[in-house]
Every structure is written in structure tokens, then in C-alpha cells.
Nucleic acid binder design. Structure first.
Lengths: 111, 111
DNA sequence: CAAATACTTAAGTAATTACTTTACTATTGG
DNA sequence: CCAATAGTAAAGTAATTACTTAAGTATTTG
């Protein structure tokens, strides 16, 4: 594990924390300001800001400041990374399991 | 964040560590013993065993011991949990973005 | 302009997590 | 049987991470 932190690393690390997933759940319903995001989460506003930082760096969330209020919204593209990683693994093991199934189904090949 | 650790929590926490993802990547190619899993990973065997414990508790991996060798394999069903969580969020925000699209496409409704 | 609002930043603390070392328990092969 | 192999378990350490407090900066609002 060298110092290289890839995007996959950042995304899965971001998704690994329950508070951050709670933030993503709330943001799924639509854009929300930082303080409204913090209200139901039993942590301080400062903690939420820190979580938002890692969510934004991972590409799962985009935020924009207008006046004194920062609006946060889901960045759908960010989730592709996670889905793609899982999908890649799946395609590998499914291909393997298919071959195994063939072997079990037709134990002889030329009769 | 009460003491309740759900399955979603366990799965995303398990996926959050790069070493554990490396283990899953290797296991995608087929079942492997613990020591062969540890070989390329620059951590000790003991560390790998610990990672396998969290992977197994999360349902992403299943292991079975025969004689003195424990064989580890991917548990495809475990990944559903992660994909489903992401999928649920996606369905929520996509529905929302669709409604937004409709509003922008047809700004008037009766005329 | 003064007070309230909405964050922001920095610094430190507490908790969790990953990892190591060491010693130990089967199992297998010569 | 003995030595090597394969993994296990416990205990401690080091690193990371989440979180708090406290002080500060813009931006409204009355």
C-alpha cells in the first residue's frame, strides 16, 4: 500500500463510515445546506463539515457556496466507481462459476 | 450511532479497507488458501487472518477448513447488500432528477 | 451598524483500526 | 516420531480516524 490513494480508495473509504452514508441518504432526496444536514445527525456541525470534505474529495458529493450558505448535492457519477469495481469482480467470478457449471453439466466431451 | 451494527455497516466497512479489497480481488479469480492469499500482500499472515474475519462476518467471503488448510472463496450474495444500498439511493435521486427534467422541458402545462 | 446566521479553520483528544510479535495448536510428510 | 506446514489466539503498539471545542470570517437581517 504505497502513498498512492486512488479514486476507488477514496470512494470506498468515504462509503465506509455510517455517518457519511447517512449524509448521502439525506442528500439523495435533494440538495441540502450544511446546517440542515447536521440537524438530525448527533454530531457537531464541524464534524459534518469534515465528512463533507471527504465526500467531496471522493467525488460522491458536490457543494457550492452562495452567499453564506453552502448547498450540498449528490454527484451521481461518483457512485459509478464503486459499482464498477463490484461489477468487475462479479464478471470475473461469474465467468468462473459458469465454467464450473459447464464442467459439472457435461462431464464427457466426445462421448 | 448506537451499538447496532447492521449488515450494511459491516459490508461497507469491510469494503473500505484497501488490503481487504485486494483480498477480494484475488479471491474473485477462485478459491485460495490463507497463506497463498497472504503471500503477495506485504502484511503478516496474522493480519490477513484478521481481515478474513471481518470479511467473513460481513458475508463477503466464506471460508472452510479441511485438514490444516482453510480455503477462502467469494460469497457473491454478500455484494448484493452494497449494490442494493447504492441502487436504492440512485432510484431516489434519479426519480427526483426526472421530475426536474420534466419541469424544465415543459414549463407550461395547459396552453 | 449591531446582532444573528452559516459556516470555516485549527488544534487537540478519544476511539477505532490495522498491524506486529510471540506463543500455541492441529495436521501432514519423511 | 519429529519436523515442517498452516493456521490460530492473545496482547500490545502504532497509525488513522472521528469528533470536540474554541476562535474566527463572511454574509445577511433588523
Amino acid at each position: 500500500m504505497p502513498g498512492q490513494t486512488s479514486n476507488v480508495d477514496r470512494v470506498f473509504h468515504a462509503l465506509g463510515d455510517p455517518t457519511r452514508r447517512a449524509i448521502l441518504e439525506k442528500l439523495s432526496a435533494g440538495p441540502v445546506s450544511v446546517s440542515r444536514l447536521a440537524e438530525p445527525l448527533d454530531v457537531t456541525l464541524a464534524a459534518v463539515v469534515q465528512h463533507l470534505q471527504v465526500l467531496e474529495e471522493s467525488g460522491l458529493v458536490h457543494t457550492e457556496k452562495l452567499g453564506r450558505v453552502r448547498t450540498c448535492r449528490i454527484e451521481p457519477a461518483g457512485f459509478w466507481v464503486a459499482e464498477q469495481w463490484i461489477g468487475e469482480r462479479r464478471s470475473i467470478w461469474e465467468r468462473r462459476l459458469d465454467r464450473l457449471g459447464e464442467l459439472l453439466a457435461e462431464p464427457e466431451e466426445g462421448a
